[in-house]
Structure formats: structure tokens, C-alpha cells
């Protein structure tokens, strides 16, 4: 199967290790991965901040870049949710504004073909044991868009549970938002920071070495808070854990 990696602008710029991990993991599972160089951003930040009309050209660009692939895989719950949940809404709203069906029709084909990474592994590839090895205590934070918009359910936990050596411990208040929320993190920085601190304290209380999530945007906020609070827990994207093997462990 030939799939396109939609890495997201945040991962591309700040977290290339996550991208390399996805490539390594999917390649190991026999998937032919391509990274279309023209990809940029799905438009989520624009849309969620109220700049829907600015998000439209980015959605059209996304469609142009990815339309010829069987599957589009992204290691970000919120960017996957942008495509799956909000691209259809972009089309609906354009139609409601009397701008015809062109946008809806252009975006429709890529919507069902876009998968969040853990969803792609479990639902499309049908694997939960990806042959990974990670001998550490891990707690998992289900990010809001993965949990509530995409309905990832227990997929990430099933994948983590099958990792050899990994001890998965429950995170208290796991389903509560970490407080990132895109521009919310700066527009309402006091509330955002209070939420982040509570998330970090909950992670610490588990005794885990690693807080794992499937979205680096949330981990950027949680990890930044961890660094400031000088906690011993470190943030790691789930792709990097699943890519880790005995031969090539994550360091």
C-alpha cells in the first residue's frame, strides 16, 4: 500500500524525530511511505482562531497535494480531525454563503482517506502488535481531538499495551484537556497554564518516566510546562515509542 505521510507543519518544523519514527514504523510494517514535498499546513490554526476564509486556500492546497494517494496518514489527532470533521464543514459553509459546491466537491474525496496514525495502524493495517520494544513506565494522555472528535477510543492503549517491556499506567484525569488549545494557550495563558500544571502533576503522580500522546502540539505545551516545573517525566510522541525496537531503541 502506498500512503502519503502528512506530517503537519508543527512536526515538520519542530519535531522531525516524530516524522522519522512514522517512516521507520510504517516501512517496518511493509507500507510504502511517501512524503509529498509540497505539503504545508491543514489550516487548523486559521480555522479555530476564526479565520475560516483563510483556511480555505490551505484546505484546497492540502487536497491538491494529497488527492492521488490511497491513504493519508498523520501523527496528529487534531490535524486529522481538521480534515475529517472540519473540511466537510468548510464546504457546507461555502455553499451556505452562496459560493456553490466547488469547495465541498474538491475536499470530499480526501476526507475519508485521511487517518490519524493509531487509527491507520489498528483499522487499516489491522495490527496492534507493531513489534516495538520500549522498556519504560509510560502513562498515556488521550488528546481531546483524538478522543472526542476522532473517537480513537482504546486504539492507542492497545498499541502501547502490545509493546514489549512497556509498563502502561493509568493517568488520573486522563480525559481532561491539557490546556493547549492552539491560540488559547496564549490568549488565555493563565487558565491554560493552570490546566497544564494540573496535567503535569497528574502525570507525576503515576510514577511514570514517560507521558505519551499522539499529538505533538499538546506535548509541546505539556513538555514546556514539565521543563519549567523541573519534573522527571518526559513527553514522547506515541510514534517514537512504536518505532523503537530492541535493535534500534529510542534513546
Amino acid at each position: 500500500m502506498r500512503v502519503a505521510l502528512f506530517l503537519t507543519c508543527v512536526n515538520d518544523t519542530l519535531y522531525p524525530d516524530t516524522g522519522r519514527a512514522v517512516v521507520k514504523l510504517l516501512t517496518r510494517l511493509g507500507v510504502e511511505v511517501d512524503f509529498p514535498m509540497a505539503q504545508t499546513c491543514c489550516g487548523q490554526a486559521h480555522y479555530n482562531t476564526g479565520y475560516r476564509h483563510q483556511a480555505e486556500p490551505l484546505a484546497r492546497h492540502f487536497s491538491d497535494v494529497f488527492k492521488d494517494y490511497e491513504a493519508i496518514v498523520t501523527p496528529s489527532g487534531s490535524c486529522a480531525a481538521m480534515v475529517r470533521e472540519l473540511y466537510p464543514r468548510l464546504g457546507d459553509r461555502a455553499r451556505a454563503e452562496g459560493r456553490g459546491t466547488a469547495l465541498a466537491e474538491q475536499l470530499a474525496p480526501i476526507v475519508p482517506r485521511t487517518h490519524e496514525l493509531t487509527e491507520f495502524l489498528v483499522d487499516v493495517l489491522g495490527v496492534t502488535d507493531v513489534g516495538a520494544y520500549f522498556p519504560h513506565t509510560v502513562t498515556y494522555h488521550p488528546t481531546c481531538h483524538g478522543l472526542r472528535a476522532l473517537g480513537l477510543g482504546d486504539r492507542p492503549r492497545r498499541l502501547l499495551s502490545a509493546v514489549r517491556g512497556l509498563d502502561l499506567v493509568e493517568l488520573p484525569g486522563a480525559e481532561e484537556c491539557c490546556g493547549f488549545g492552539g491560540t488559547f494557550a496564549v490568549k488565555n495563558s493563565d487558565v491554560s497554564a493552570a490546566m497544564g500544571t494540573d496535567k503535569v502533576r497528574n502525570a507525576e503522580s503515576t510514577g511514570a518516566e514517560v507521558l505519551c500522546a499522539a499529538d505533538n502540539s499538546c506535548l509541546m505545551h505539556i513538555g514546556g510546562t514539565m521543563a519549567r516545573l523541573r519534573t522527571t517525566v518526559r513527553p514522547v510522541h506515541i510514534a517514537e515509542i512504536l518505532a523503537s525496537t530492541e535493535e534500534e531503541p529510542l534513546t
Binding site: L7, N11, D12, T13, L14, Y15, P16, D17, G19, R20, F35, M37, A185, V186, K187, S189, A193, G196, T197, M220, H221, G223, G224, T225, A227, R228
Partner: peptide
């Protein structure tokens, strides 16, 4: 205005090269 982020959070460290350079 950047203080709204960095008052309570470290900035992420920029990597030596972005993913697309590695891919290229």
C-alpha cells in the same frame, strides 16, 4: 506578547534540520 507562552512554559528546542530537509 511571547511572554504569554514562555512565562510558564519552555519553548520547544528547534531541531538541527526540519523533517523535509532530512527527507530531501
Amino acid at each position: 506578547p511571547g511572554r504569554a507562552w514562555s512565562a510558564t512554559r519552555d519553548l520547544p528546542k528547534l531541531p538541527p534540520e526540519p523533517f523535509r530537509e532530512w527527507w530531501r
